[in-house]
Structure formats: structure tokens, C-alpha cells
Design a protein around this nucleic acid. Sequence first.
DNA 1: ATTCTTGCAAACTATTTGCAGAACA
DNA 2: TGTTCTGCAAATAGTTTGCAAGAAT
Lengths: 139, 139
Amino acid sequence: MRPNSAEALPTSAPRSTRQKRAVAQLLGELDVFRSAQDLYAELRRRGERVGLTTVYNQLRTMSESGEVDVIRTEDGESLYRLCGSGHHHHVVCRSCGLTIEVEGPELESLAARLASKYHFSEVTHTFEIAGLCSTCACV
Amino acid sequence: MRPNSAEALPTSAPRSTRQKRAVAQLLGELDVFRSAQDLYAELRRRGERVGLTTVYNQLRTMSESGEVDVIRTEDGESLYRLCGSGHHHHVVCRSCGLTIEVEGPELESLAARLASKYHFSEVTHTFEIAGLCSTCACV
DNA sequence: ATTCTTGCAAACTATTTGCAGAACA
DNA sequence: TGTTCTGCAAATAGTTTGCAAGAAT
């Protein structure tokens, strides 16, 4: 919102570090939603020297800049995934995390219609579909 | 799922207690989503002698039986509200919690269409609209 | 009398924060 | 060199659990 919020004002550009690159690259390889803890574990498994705090920092930064999408599981865990730009929704496999980005014009208009019907302003909406993908359903 | 799961198998009917009644009654008076902590505080304010654990227990029981709806805020808090029966979605005021239950046939068919398009089975979907109600927007 | 319920205290879990030392530009 | 970044350890916060005492049937 404000160009210079009181919080963190960085006086210069973000720096490129080994850790940031590792997180970004891992996200680039995956097309599924994963938790911060999962991503951290995977990085360690690969021998990357990264701290959990840094993974969280990086994911927050990337989600704020719109580079990654965040969804929350039923038990409150946050899952992250590199995302395409623009407004979209997801069809997510509960079992393997496989995710398909979808758009729904009729959904958007429905949301807008309901908002105006009840005189709500500054509306946002969430729409997520969870199920079993064809691969996981066979097991 | 299973008639007798290994977990808690109750051998007789649930009992009516002062605490359960207090929680149920409070929910009956409110038409907004409230956190467990909020509900607990309100009960104490009214002089009810109830423990926080009991409020949580009761809310969990009631949500499992479908008596109350649960939504999660952005920061992971659970909000509860007595709900009408049947499948529905919500238009929720971010500021005061005012909630309107809505149905959306086109939404249901869209969800079904997307599921079959990508060969997903056992699908569920979520759809929530959050905004400012007309009252809160004037402030 | 028996079983369910309560609620304090402690445990849990995902996430955030303080901060001193390390790493970039 | 002067920030930014890192990551350990500790703090947070909502929620759950262990369990002994209390209440309902």
C-alpha cells in the first residue's frame, strides 16, 4: 500500500544468496503444494545448508511478492507453490498434492453478484477444490 | 466411517451438562463467526463457570456432528457458528463477523465440471466470500 | 455404581522474533 | 565497509491431551 511503510524499510535492493537460490530452485522443480517444513527437509536431504527460519523468511517474501501461492490445510498448516500470475483457483490432490490452476469466470461473477446483493464491499473470495487425482484414486 | 472406531467408543449416550448447555445457548444467540477464545471469554463475562478446554471440546463435538460450521482466519484461528443444515457457503464480514449463508447451484456444477474434467474423484470444495458489510463499510 | 465430563496444567505444533555473527554488494 | 541476510534459540498462540476429581444417569 504505502511506498514506505514504517515497518521494515529496506534502503537498497534485496541480495542474492545461496539459500534464497536453493529455495527458489526447489520450488521451480515442484508442481505441488508443500509445507515449509517439507521444503526444508528436502533441502537438507539434498545437502543444502539452509536454516528453517530462512526457508520461512523466503517463502513469506515470495508469497508477498506474488511469486508463490499459499493455501492452508484443514489443520492449519501452510502449503506453498510457485504460481502463475493473475487471479486463479486450484484443483488439488489430497494425496499427492498435484495441483491444477483453473479460472472460473462464472465463479467470479457469482462472487461479485453475491457481494452486491448483500451490499458487501472490498470483497475477496476463496475457492478450492480438493480430491483424488486419477493416479492416486487407483491405489 | 466405521461404526466402532478404535479411538473413543462411547458406550452410552452423551450427557447433558450445564457447560454444554451454556455453549449451545450462546451459539444460538449469535449469528456471527466467533473464535473459541471469544466464546469462552463471553461465557465468563456472563458469569458462566466453564473451562476453556470444555468450550473447545464442545465446539469440536458440535462441528463433527454438523451443528456448527468452522472457518479458519488468515492467521489460522478457527471460528465457529451455529449453522443451518445442508450444503452451503458463506459471505462473511471481515470486521464484525456478520455472516450470510448462501447457496450457489452454478458453483456446485462448476466444481463438478472441473473435477470430471481433470478426473478427480471424492472431491470437496470450499468457497467463501469475505468483505465489509454495509454497516462496517461506513466507519 | 458406573461412565461420561470437566478443567487445570502441561504438551504440541507451526510459525515468528531477537539478535549476534556471516555474507553480499 | 555498511547493510542485508542467516539461523540458533527462545517466544508465541491456538489448540490438544493427560489425568484426577466431579457430575450425570
